[in-house]
């Protein structure tokens, strides 16, 4: 918006002001993380101030030798990658069938996909816990991954269906004439052309797995060595007794991969959002 003279300055002023306030609000907990991580124990005891008087910079190095933290990060990674893989493996074929073919029950399945997006783990956690116990899936990653994936799957199917539908039917017909069956068409044509959608879906499911809390909390409560960061930090007072500084550092570190992923695929995510709302 280009406006002349004084008007421009007033506009800019408001804009930057608003941006700064919003940014400040968003950043608050992260500033708390940094500030707290740098403080020696003594400064955490009394009234706290933002700037540590004697910042303990070595925390940035020391944290990487803390086995509890490293294990937590590794567990989070395992769960996040597991969820990403399982979700894509289930969502890709399903979305392809839904986007490209008309068949009995299709609309019914689409409705289920739309409606199940509303379910959160909390409503079925009780029977899930019992089933996991019965199947011996309690206390291990497979159970957590299976259960978590189901909650991001409907959204992933929905997102991918949108991307797949956007690919021209003629391209697929061309592939058919080039002797591609359904699977070959999916592999040679649909998937390469849906990279933005695949990226968006992968990032979403990774994020979901990385940030998941309730299922890990419930399924892994008895095995602290398998806790992901979320559960570990929450339970810090008890089993994960690593001190507030290390705790804040861990929270900060676990935000990093997300931030990296996000800036890496921001362009794709934008297109994902556009697809999402364009329907």
């Amino acid at each position: 918006m280009r406006r002349p003279g004084f008007h421009l300055d007033a506009w800019r002023f408001t804009l930057y002001g608003a941006a700064l306030i919003v940014a400040g609000i968003c950043l608050f907990p992260y500033l708390v993380m940094v500030s707290t991580a740098l403080k020696p124990d003594a400064e955490l005891a009394g009234a706290q101030s933002w700037l540590p008087t004697a910042p303990n910079w070595s925390i940035f190095v020391d944290i990487w030798t803390d086995e509890t933290v490293l294990r937590g990060l590794r567990n989070s990674l395992i769960i996040a990658f597991g969820v990403t893989f399982l979700t894509l493996a289930c969502a890709i074929p399903a979305a392809y069938a839904l986007a490209r073919h008309r068949f009995p029950l299709r609309d019914g399945f689409m409705t289920v996909v739309l409606v199940t997006q509303m379910l959160s783990p909390i409503v079925v956690i009780v029977p899930l816990f019992q089933t996991a116990t019965d199947l011996g899936l309690l206390g291990g990653f497979p159970g957590v991954i299976l259960a978590s994936s189901a909650f991001i799957l409907p959204f992933s199917i929905w997102l991918l269906t949108g991307f797949f539908s956007a690919i021209s039917t003629e391209l697929e017909e061309a592939a058919t004439l080039d002797a591609c069956g359904r699977l070959a068409t999916l592999w040679h044509v649909i998937l390469p052309l849906s990279l933005p959608g695949l990226a968006a879906t992968a990032v979403y499911s990774f994020l979901f797995g990385w940030n998941e809390f309730v299922i890990s909390l419930t399924f892994l409560s008895a095995v602290p060595e398998k806790w992901p960061v979320t559960v570990g930090v929450f339970s810090s007072i008890g089993q994960w007794d690593i001190g507030w500084q290390a705790l804040m550092m861990t929270a900060l570190i676990s935000t990093l991969p997300v931030l990296l992923l996000f800036s890496f695929v921001q362009k794709y995510l934008d297109r994902g959002f556009a697809t999402l709302i364009g329907r």
């Binding site: 608050f28 707290t36 990385w210 804040m248 929270a251 935000t255 997300v258 800036s263």
Partner: peptide
């Protein structure tokens, strides 16, 4: 990027940080 931080961080983690910051002598 800053705006997306709250969305990208696990609510379980940021809630721990908020709880800490909201203690009587907190930030």
């Amino acid at each position: 990027v800053v705006l997306m931080l709250p969305w990208a961080t696990s609510l379980a983690l940021s809630a721990v940080v908020w709880r800490f910051a909201m203690s009587p002598k907190g930030l």
